[in-house]
Design a protein around this nucleic acid. Structure first.
Lengths: 207, 207
DNA sequence: GAAAATTTGTTCGTATGTATC
DNA sequence: CGATACATACGAACAAATTTT
């Protein structure tokens, strides 16, 4: 069975190998469907009972899978009538865009596009329109789509940074991850814009 | 039973309120103990059965909590005799990343990557999300992947600082490690920006 | 290498609290 | 308010995997 990219042992030697359980297989299938856009944010995933029937497992197994998906921020669960598991909004989209970029790590144009969309999704997730503008300018400066010098290693590093960013947002830290995120983006934007301005001043023909 | 600060509903209107379950309370207690350094990486947390007895809940509830903690990367679970849940080890990861960087001290790309991962691992180990944000922004801004100006002597100095940091964190000198980390990051940032400025001054066409 | 002990993985049945209609 | 649907929770038991003996 195919492992989730995040489980690749090459980059995380610390994590011991653990045989694929039924619940982990369900988790993988849900995430694969999410990345393949068969599942979209907001979609109803099902109740414990439904999932158990669909995957032909007991309710406890479905429950295990839902606990994992919930902790990963992939689904949100409601109790009571009409309840069940639904694909979470922000996290799901970020993860999806990261997966896209990962699949196109050797395709410069595709990788750049996916990364740009990721930045915008982050900004949208923060619900700050000022940030969107700043990020667009940031992308123009540091992510020229026509730049053919994007090596696989560079792509990999950017990808990792994005993953960390997504994880950070997933934390939904009570201390104010949202506010910190804003400052983070503003800082990048300001710096990049300043550098760009200086660069253009010295070499008007650039970019 | 005391609730985890992250569960306060007052600050998160988006997330639908969900009654505190037994398993989430166990998760909160474990994470609190980890943050308060009552639990350290590598510590044995217990088996499902033991946890169920300790918290006076059923095995299913303990299992739910472990699924969540596992998905959050807080614990690692092994089956079989001598198995059970242990607090995820991060010292080993720090040491491994330092060793990686040391092996690639003449390989700019490899060294840069290992150092970057080290920074993040340190931030994660210190459980300080402010630092995580600072480090991510630092990487975005001042660690351009195509920067070829990383000299061996600079690399050596960074490496030594990393070793010092690792030692501090292992000593569990929380306050000291946090402050030192801050200064370390600021130093790198300043240095990088200065180098970049100097480089552009010498060769305006660069970058 | 084989047997035993330990632990997680999995199933079924049942009861209870809670949200929706 | 009552009925319904659902997640949460408990208990007992067997299967599978892993370590220890």
């Amino acid at each position: 069975m195919r492992l989730h990219p995040a489980m690749k042992s090459s980059e995380r030697k610390v994590i011991p190998f653990r045989t694929a359980t039924m619940s982990t297989q369900i988790v993988a299938q849900v995430r694969d469907a999410l990345f393949a856009k068969e599942l979209r944010p907001g979609d109803f995933l099902g109740t414990e009972k439904e999932l158990a029937e669909r995957f032909a497992v007991s309710r406890i197994v479905a429950r295990d899978a839902l606990r994992t998906l919930e902790a990963q921020g992939v689904v949100e669960i409601k109790v009571g009538s009409g309840g069940g598991a639904r694909i979470a909004e922000d996290h799901a989209r970020l993860r999806e865009l990261i997966a896209q970029a990962e699949r196109r790590i050797n395709d410069v144009a595709g990788f750049t596009r996916a990364s740009r969309e990721f930045h915008l999704a982050v900004a949208e997730a923060s619900h700050n329109r000022v940030l969107v503008v700043q990020l667009i300018s940031l992308q123009h400066v540091s992510w020229p789509a026509h730049n053919p010098t994007l090596t696989p290693s560079v792509a990999r590093r950017v990808l990792d940074a994005h993953k960390e960013l997504a994880s950070l947002i997933e934390m939904r830290d009570g201390a104010g991850a949202g506010r910190l995120m804003d400052e983070h983006v503003k800082m990048i934007g300001a710096r990049r814009v300043a550098e760009h301005r200086d660069k253009r001043r010295e070499n008007p023909a650039c970019c």
